[in-house]
Each structure stands twice: as structure tokens, then as C-alpha cells.
Design a protein around this nucleic acid. Structure first.
Length: 882
RNA sequence: GGGCAGUUAGCUUAGCGGUAGAGCGCUACGUUGACAUCGUAGAGGUCACUGGUUCGAUCCCAGUACUGCCCACCA
């Protein structure tokens, strides 16, 4: 006997174990089935499960469950990402609490701690993913720093280096002074910040006059190497070529001319600090200016600056410099100014400093060419398609990628330096040594590059490194390229674009066919979840309260195509209620002895009610399938929601009540079997989205010896388009709804059974009525239904349904005035409609240009309206006693 | 500054040339033995605005206004 409600906790635990043990949870390259492959977007080994993970995991898990039912050999490969920077942020925070930095520990000790952290966090996050009912092939789990994945990374680095597509260069890089590491452009976000614009007087060396420049960063004046003005600026034209003396510094620098300068901004004259600003850097290169770096790696002023400022932190230096300028009369004015300040993307706390340094770069512009083509020519398709615009926009304007990080946790760069700095890139130290010895013509000493690679470098290889590449493996041969990639919109550049670039470059194939993008999970008001706002929803708390199914189903049902997902506990609760509804439907069936009969052939069902629901199930099956195949999982969810609640529970179950209680034994048996048949197929369709409850009910009804997890998708063929049962039950529903509506409107006591009469019915409809009389009586709470033969009773209520007129003879029961008003309203509505149609039909343009079938449609509608009008009109006159 | 989405009932949204559809919320009524985590019924929409194309526009085109996101960063 099923419990009163679904208790998700025990059930979830039970099936997590059973699924894990099922062989269907693993890929079988020799099965002969067609493969369907999804690589898990690897969660970082940093923290706890959040809502982003839930959507990240639920979508591919649903797709895999569906494709497995459809008979594919599914590979759903799980894994985790070492998340270089995120782990550094975490461990360094821990160390700071001890009053230390990673440099106090040293590389080896730091890495030891990192690995410990990884172990602990890895088991935490994978357990949490399992709690959602996610069932990937754990036997093939990977970690981005696994030995074999590391080999893939090394190979890619070495190969690209040999092709000249990875190189070392001294350039400006986004420097995080706290971490003392460079960052890629994608890891920097700019935040619009209110600040000041300082106008500073720079005196000409010859002392004849001053030139005023405006800057948001006065401290960088210590590294100025020019003043730039627009070549056509009348104010400054005569000064070009002269020199000015930097205040506080005393160094002389030239005034140069460049079109880049905007005459309207600031004072129209700009100081140029090539070592600390990207635009200045470009100017510096153009004009062959010296580049003076005035900060060390911790963003403190270095020895290139006047002694007074050395050792000051950059923002402290700013204050002191401004004060000095003011005191010495160099400060013209301070203007309030809003500018965009670059911060690190991970913590949003550290101001990023453009810093001149030696870094490794990857030639993304080269890799992008093929990546653009692969999407243009359809080898890869984005869903939704509009995401392709974003993809192209980025790739067509792509910059070299800074791939080195001055960190320890990650893939150490396979480059060694000779004593004179010569670079030797090789897969192993031995090879590098050999290269070096050959280069120097003698035994030499080499030192490995300390830096590691950007985390995303290894992620870019994920679709093939996980399958054993560069080794020749069965899995790689069989499962690459993968089928579908599902990912969150925030990592389209970080991850997706780079996987495509690397996949094409190293395997010659697009790493996946379909790229399915989902939006970000936000709270119910559409706001970003953040600790500061306090609107973060912990998915595990939701799972505890409402169950994993409700969370998964709710999230997928609420996720519009590629757009952000607004969801909060109230929405999840609603889907929990839906699952409860299903549970109760199951209890109803159990109470009514609906057991599975594997010999039941739905095509032999004879009762119209049963034939109808069988047909509806088939229609739903097609809709669900179509939605799943086109990645519209939200449609899949809502289609099932409507079918289960609106069709199966609201109508079919209600209609079976009289059938099970009153009908003949054969009809009763057929109905029991139909209920079980429909329900079993509903469970199969629903299981990709709500795996736990469906599995539990499947087991309870013993629909098969197997787990639902291992079942097959039902193939019904096309539902019958002209089954008379469909029209019959639609008519019945129409009749019942109309009567219920009248009862409510006329305030008839819900408990009262009332008589009903029908007229204007054809013999066929009469037959229908005779068949369905008991159901209509029961569901509309009628005492009797008669076909009206004589005159219509004077005090009665008239309503129209398809193929019949309904009369409720309610003398003395019903308020005649209320009924009069109701009829007046109906009549007015009809007249209004007829008038509109008439206007159309009397429009010559319309009649001559609109397609014939549309015109016919209007004419038919007009005819129907007129019939209705006359019937209501008669009823109205009768009521008035005319 | 550039790009991409979006603007439909109080909220979340579907529809995308020919009578506006759903869920939630709301209102009224309700113990008809699956379910009050529920049932029945109901109210609620000039489909952002302005033009254009069309016999006909929520739907196509152009522009405007907001909203969100992404990219670039005028010192």
C-alpha cells in the first residue's frame, strides 16, 4: 500500500544506490548501439553545490536518461576541474587567517595542501551531485589534473609551441597584485566607479608655459614618457615636439601628436604611461617611447620612481602625490569623474594593474578561424541559435590569450630555460635537457618555468582528453566526437569557444554537434543570487524540503530557451505539489485494483473513455518526444504537466470512477488495465525529468522486472486522427463543463442533483448521450437527463454546447432575473461578434483578396453565430413570456 | 560606444499573419472516499509606443522608449 504522500528522502537514497549499480549507468562501446555522448561541465573543486550546478547537471542528465530510453549507448562522463585560481583564492585566504602567505609555505607544501583540499572537496561535490539523482558513468570519472589529462595538456602546449602558436612575450598583462599573477582578459571585469579626474599642470622644460593634462591615475605620472595631443588641436599644435618636465619627478618628456587623442575629453592633452595602461602602451609602441614600470609585483612603487615614493602602495602613493602636487601648485583642479575600474573576476575585490611582464601567449586569432567556420557551416549548432551571434562576435575580434599564471596549483608549463634565458619547450625534462645540450654544444643547466597554465587551457581539451587522447583508446575512437554540450551562458567564451578551437586543431573534428546553452539561475524576482543580497538558495535545503525531483523538474520547466531562469522556493513547491498529485493518482489506481497486464493491447480497448485517453497518451508521447529531440526541455516538462494534471487526473480519473463502480465486469477490467497502461507510459515519459518518484511508482506497480532507469521508450506510432472516441469525450467534457459553469453562475447548491434536458440533437448524438449518460450525471451532479420532445418549459435555463442545446427546467429554483441578465449578456456578445464578421465580409477588399478558405471560415462562423443567436433569442422570449 | 536578447493578464511565461493560451496568484463556492500539497467556477489582456507592408499585424519591416546581458574601455 502506498503511503499517503511521497516521502522522497528514503526513496532517493534507495535508488541512488540502485542506479549506480545498474550496468545501464555505464557506456558500453561494444554494445553495437548508437552512442550518445555528453561530457559533464566539470564543477570546480572549490565549494558546495549551488543552483547553477543543479541546472548544469539536470539538463544533460535528463537528455541522457531520455536517450538511454531511446536505446542509445549513452556516455555521460563526469569529472571535476582543478580551478587553479579559485583554489588559490581559497587556500590563500586560509593562510592569511594564519597570518601567512603561500610564499611562507613554498610550492611543495602549498601543493600538498591543495591536493588535500581537492580530495576533500571532490568527494563533497560529487556526493552532492549524486544527491540530485544525477547518474553519470562514474567508472570513467576524470579530473583535469589526472596524469593522462596532464599528458594531453603537455602535448597540446608543445605542439602549439612548435607551430609558433604559443609563444613567450613581454607585454602588458592584467596583473593581480594580491595573488601576484597575470590574468586573461576574460578574468577581468570592469566596474563603473565614481572617482576623480585630476587636472595637473606640466611645465614646459623651457619654462615658457604649462600644459594641463587630466588623469584618473595621478600616481602613474611617475612613469610618464610623453604627453600626447591631437595633431590638429589649435590649443597645443605649436607645442608638439617640445618637452615638458614631469612635476615631482623632474624628468623631461616630449609632447607628441596622435589621432587617438580626443580633443573633447579632459583637457585634450593626455599623459602617456606605456607601462601601466593599455592605450598608452599602444601609443608608446607607435611612437617608440620608453616604457618605465614604476611598480613592483605587489603594486608598490619601485626604484624607477623618485625616492620619496618608493615602497608606497599604489593608492597610498596616489594620495601623497596629489597632496604634493597641490602643495607645489601643480594641481589645476579636481573634477568628479566616473570611470571603469578593472577588478579580478573571481573576488571582485582586487584592482587589476596593467603590468609589463613576460608571459606565455596562445595565438587565439589563428585558432579562431576554423572555429568560426565550424559554426558557420553547421558542423556545430547552437541552441538557441541566437547564441551564435555572441560566439561570432567574440571570435571575430579575438585577442591573444595570456595562458601563464604565476601560481602553483595547475599544469606546470613544460618550458625550461638555459642559463642565458634560452627557452626549451618539451614534453619531459629529459627531452628539454637534450635540446639544451644540443643548443649549447655541451652539458648545460636548465631550470623549469615556475608558472602554471590558465585553468581553461585544460578545460579546452575536456571533450577528448577525458577519453584518453593523445593515446589511441577504444573510448576515444568510439565516443569522439561527442554529441551534445550543455553549458551555462557565462562560460561561452571561457570554455565553449576554446573547446571548439582546440578540438578542431587537435582532432580535426568539432568536439560536439549540438551546443545547448542555458541561462543563469536567478531568484524569483529575477535578481542575481548573491551572498550580499542574501537571496542565495541552497539546493540541498530545497532537496530536503521538496525533494530532488521537484527541484529538477521545476528548474527545467521554468527555464525558457537560453534565457535566465527565475525561480524561488514557491515555484519549487508548486512542482512538488505536482508530484504529490501523481502520487495520489497512483494511490487511486492502487485502491481500484489497477494492475499491470503486459498482454493488454490498447488497440483492443472498446470503451470510448478508454480509447480517448489512450489516444491522448499517444499524442502526448509525440509532443514529448519532439520537445526532447529539439532540446526544448521546458516544453517537455510543461506538456507532461498538462497531460498528467489537466487530462489524466482532472478528466480521465474522474471519468473512470463511475466506470469502475458501476459498469460491467469487462468494461471495469478494461478500465483498470487502461489506467495502468497509461500510467506506466506516463512514468517512462516523465522519468528523465523526475527520476525518483517515477522509479518508485514503477517498482510499486511492478510494471517490469527491470528498473525504470533501464527501460525502453514506448513507440506507439501515430495516434489515430479520427477515432470517434476523441470527439465523443470532447463533447462530454464540453457538456459537463457547461453545466458546471451554469450551476456556479446560477448559485445552485453544489450538493443538489438537478434534472437536465437536451434538445436539437441528432440520432448520433442521442447515441452518444445514451452511452455517456451515467458519466455526465455523475460529474455534473444531475438527477436525470431526458431528451426534450415537447415544448420547452417556460421557466428554464438555456445553454448551448456542441451538437446540442441544454435546458435546465428549474422553475422556482433559479432566479429568473439572473437568468435574464445572463441571456442578455450572451446575446450581446453574439451580436457583437456577428457585427465584426459582417464588417469583414462586406469589405470588398477582404472578399476579393483573402484566401477562399478563410472567407468560408468566416461565413461558417457567422452561420453558427446566427443559429446561437436565434436559440438564445427564443429562450429569452420564453422567459419573458412572449 | 558596439552587439545580443526582451517588453503579452498582478507574477512567470507560450504563441509569431486570420476569434489572445497556460501555470501561479486572486475571488466565490466546496469533506462528491486518489489528492485541501486538493476540487469546481470566475474575474483579469488597447499583446511597450509610433509609423510602414497587408484585405487583415501580438506576430513581418523601420524607428522610439524602457529592461537585462555581453563586449570594448575617453585619459
Amino acid at each position: 500500500m502506498l503511503e499517503k504522500t511521497f516521502s522522497h528522502k528514503e526513496v532517493e537514497e534507495k535508488f541512488r544506490t540502485q542506479w549506480k549499480q545498474s550496468s545501464m549507468g555505464h557506456a558500453h562501446p561494444t554494445s553495437g548501439k548508437k552512442p550518445y555522448v555528453i561530457m559533464m561541465p566539470p564543477p570546480n573543486v572549490t565549494g558546495n553545490l549551488h543552483m547553477g550546478h543543479v541546472i548544469d547537471q539536470s539538463i544533460p542528465d535528463a537528455l541522457i536518461r531520455y536517450q538511454r530510453l531511446k536505446g542509445h549507448d549513452c556516455l555521460w562522463l563526469p569529472g571535476t576541474d582543478h580551478a587553479s585560481i579559485a583554489v588559490h583564492v581559497l587556500l590563500e585566504r586560509q593562510m592569511r587567517e594564519e597570518g601567512k602567505t603561500r610564499f611562507d609555505y613554498g610550492r611543495e607544501e602549498f601543493l600538498k595542501r591543495a591536493w588535500q583540499w581537492k580530495e576533500q572537496c571532490h568527494s563533497n561535490i560529487t556526493n552532492q551531485i549524486s544527491r540530485l539523482g544525477i547518474v553519470p558513468d562514474w567508472s570513467r570519472e576524470r579530473f583535469t589534473m589526472d596524469e593522462s589529462l596532464n599528458r594531453a595538456v603537455i602535448k597540446v602546449f608543445v605542439d602549439l609551441y612548435k607551430k609558433g602558436k604559443i609563444y613567450r612575450a613581454k607585454r602588458l598583462v592584467n596583473w593581480n597584485p594580491l595573488q601576484q599573477s597575470g590574468l586573461s582578459d576574460l578574468e577581468v571585469v570592469s566596474v563603473s566607479t565614481k572617482g576623480s579626474l585630476w587636472h595637473i599642470r606640466y611645465p614646459l622644460t623651457d619654462g615658457t608655459q604649462n600644459i594641463v593634462i587630466a588623469t584618473t591615475r595621478p600616481e602613474t605620472m611617475l612613469g610618464d614618457t610623453a604627453i600626447a595631443v591631437h595633431p590638429e588641436d589649435a590649443r597645443y599644435k605649436h607645442l608638439i615636439g617640445k618637452t615638458v618636465r614631469i612635476p615631482l619627478v623632474g624628468r623631461d618628456i616630449p609632447i607628441i601628436a596622435d589621432d587617438y587623442i580626443d580633443r573633447e575629453t579632459g583637457s585634450g592633452a593626455m599623459k602617456v604611461t606605456p607601462a601601466h595602461d593599455y592605450n598608452d602602451f599602444a601609443l608608446g609602441e607607435r611612437h617608440k617611447l620608453p616604457m618605465i614600470s614604476i611598480m613592483d609585483l605587489t603594486a608598490h612603487i619601485n626604484e624607477n620612481a623618485p625616492e620619496k615614493y618608493r615602497g608606497m602602495e599604489r593608492f597610498e602613493a596616489r594620495k601623497v602625490i596629489v597632496a604634493d602636487l597641490e602643495e607645489q601648485g601643480f594641481l589645476e583642479k579636481i573634477e568628479p569623474w566616473t570611470s571603469n575600474i578593472p577588478y579580478d573576476e573571481k573576488t571582485l575585490k582586487v584592482v587589476i594593474e596593467p603590468m609589463l611582464s613576460d608571459q606565455w601567449w596562445c595565438d587565439q586569432p589563428y585558432l579562431a578561424q576554423e572555429a568560426i567556420k565550424a559554426v558557420e557551416d553547421g558542423r556545430i549548432e547552437f541552441v538557441p541559435k541566437s547564441a551564435e551571434n555572441t560566439y561570432f562576435a567574440w571570435l571575430k575580434n579575438i585577442q591573444p590569450w595570456c595562458i601563464s599564471r604565476q601560481l602553483w596549483w595547475g599544469h606546470q608549463i613544460p618550458a625550461w630555460y638555459g642559463e642565458d634565458g634560452e627557452i626549451f619547450v618539451a614534453s619531459t625534462e629529459q627531452e628539454a635537457q637534450a635540446l639544451a645540450d644540443k643548443h649549447y654544444g655541451k652539458k648545460s643547466t636548465i631550470t623549469r618555468d615556475n608558472d602554471v597554465l590558465d585553468t581553461w587551457f585544460s578545460s579546452a581539451l575536456w571533450p577528448f582528453s577525458t577519453l584518453g587522447w593523445p593515446d589511441k583508446t577504444v573510448d576515444f575512437d568510439h565516443y569522439y566526437p561527442t554529441t551534445t554540450l550543455s553549458f551555462g551562458a557565462d562560460i561561452i567564451f571561457f570554455w565553449v569557444a576554446r573547446m571548439i578551437m582546440m578540438g578542431l586543431e587537435f582532432t580535426g573534428k568539432a568536439p560536439f554537434k549540438h551546443v545547448l546553452m542555458h541561462g543563469m539561475v536567478r531568484d524569483e524576482k529575477g535578481q542575481k543570487m548573491s551572498k550580499v543580497k542574501g537571496n542565495v538558495i541552497d539546493p540541498l535545503i530545497i532537496v530536503d524540503e521538496f525533494g530532488a525531483d521537484a527541484l529538477r523538474f521545476g528548474l527545467i520547466a521554468s527555464a525558457p530557451q537560453g534565457r535566465d531562469i527565475n525561480i524561488g522556493p514557491p515555484q519549487i513547491e508548486k512542482f512538488r505539489n505536482f508530484l504529490t498529485k501523481i502520487w495520489n493518482a497512483a494511490r487511486y489506481m492502487e485502491m481500484n485494483g489497477c494492475t499491470h497486464d503486459k498482454n493488454f493491447n490498447p488497440n483492443t480497448a472498446s470503451d470510448p473513455v478508454n480509447r480517448w485517453i489512450i489516444n491522448e497518451t499517444r499524442k502526448t508521447n509525440l509532443l514529448v518526444q519532439e520537445a526532447a529531440e529539439t532540446f526544448r526541455l521546458n516544453d517537455m516538462a510543461t506538456t507532461l504537466y498538462q497531460f498528467i494534471w489537466g487530462t489524466f487526473c482532472d478528466w480521465y480519473l474522474e471519468l473512470t470512477k463511475p466506470l469502475l463502480a458501476q459498469s460491467s465486469d469487462t468494461t471495469k477490467a478494461e478500465t483498470q488495465k487502461t489506467l495502468a497502461w497509461v500510467f506506466s507510459h506516463t512514468l517512462i515519459m516523465l522519468t528523465p525529468l523526475a527520476p525518483f518518484i517515477t522509479e518508485e511508482l514503477w517498482a510499486n506497480f511492478k510494471f517490469s522486472d527491470k528498473l525504470l532507469f533501464e527501460e525502453q521508450w514506448p513507440e506507439f506510432g501515430t495516434p489515430s486522427a479520427n477515432d470517434t472516441a476523441v470527439a465523443e469525450i470532447q463533447w462530454l467534457v464540453d457538456v459537463i463543463s457547461t453545466i458546471r459553469s451554469l450551476r456556479a453562475e446560477l448559485h445552485i447548491n453544489p450538493g443538489d442533483k438537478i434534472p437536465l434536458m437536451m434538445k436539437d440533437i441528432s440520432p448520433a448524438v442521442k447515441e452518444r448521450l445514451d452511452r455517456q449518460r451515467p458519466l455526465i450525471e455523475k460529474l455534473a451532479r444531475l438527477s436525470s437527463i431526458d431528451v426534450l420532445t415537447g415544448a420547452t418549459p417556460k421557466s428554464s435555463v438555456t445553454a448551448l454546447v456542441s451538437d446540442a442545446t441544454i435546458i435546465l427546467p428549474l422553475e422556482g429554483i433559479v432566479d429568473l432575473k439572473a437568468e435574464t441578465e445572463r441571456l442578455e449578456k450572451e446575446l450581446a456578445k453574439i451580436k457583437d461578434e456577428v457585427q465584426k464578421i459582417d464588417a469583414k465580409l462586406s469589405n470588398e477588399q477582404f472578399v476579393s483578396r483573402a484566401p477562399q478558405e478563410i472567407i468560408e471560415e468566416y461565413k461558417e462562423r457567422r452561420q453558427n453565430m446566427l443559429v446561437s443567436e436565434s436559440k438564445f433569442d427564443q429562450a429569452f422570449k420564453r422567459l419573458k413570456g412572449v
